[in-house]
Design a binder for these strands. Structure first.
Lengths: 99, 99
DNA sequence: CCTTTGTTTCGTAATTTTACGAAATACGAA
DNA sequence: TTCGTATTTCGTAAAATTACGAAACAAAGG
């Protein structure tokens, strides 16, 4: 019921959130793969990327939390894909921002 | 003399660095102002933004470190402006990334 | 049921980020 | 030189991020 004055706009907060998701090279790398080709599995990434699987899992979780990426369960694997809708939103926000 | 294998590309690291600079709403807000109109002073920002001046100064320092913003000394004030060259680079990197 | 496979969660530690107020700095004006 | 203005740096604290290995989990196959 508390009416709190928000200083930052919704767009500013969304942009910051997407930017935060992309603020680590491994997350940029993962999104780059997912946007260029198709979806992929955590294990596929783990073989390429020079970090522990548990750490990779944390980064994937962050990308999921940001909304840029989603995971589809495909037992016993989990297939990670871009969330097209949010990806398009981020694209638009950055485009507007730099315009 | 050490030849270290770098896993992430220069572009991935640069993008992550710019994204990090934009990963806080106040920094998005500041860049938004600087890109829309002209330069401005720390004090002008301090009057608008709901954070302490010292905290604002830290955010400005981070924006300077990222290369997106530069400060011109204009005693007794310091005028902050976008670094046009780096701004254009960031714009291009994000454009390519989302393409 | 037990094992294997793929992946995540837990526990932990080091580092970084975010934030504040107080003190320091720089410089022009009185 | 002393004062006032504009801003940053320092000291500090709380919270978040990044990273790892060990343990847990879920599902399919034997």
């Amino acid at each position: 019921m508390e009416e709190v004055k928000q200083f930052y706009s919704v767009e500013e907060k969304k942009l910051a959130r997407y930017a935060k998701a992309l603020s680590h090279p491994v997350r940029v790398y993962i999104c780059g793969i997912l946007s260029k080709q198709a979806c992929c599995y955590s294990g596929d990434l783990a073989e390429e990327v020079p970090i522990a699987r548990s750490t990779l899992s944390q980064h994937l979780k962050e990308l999921k939390n940001s909304g840029l990426v989603q995971g589809e369960i495909n037992p016993p694997k989990i297939k990670y894909c871009l969330n097209k809708e949010n990806w398009a939103e981020a694209q638009q926000l950055f485009k507007e921002f730099f315009k």
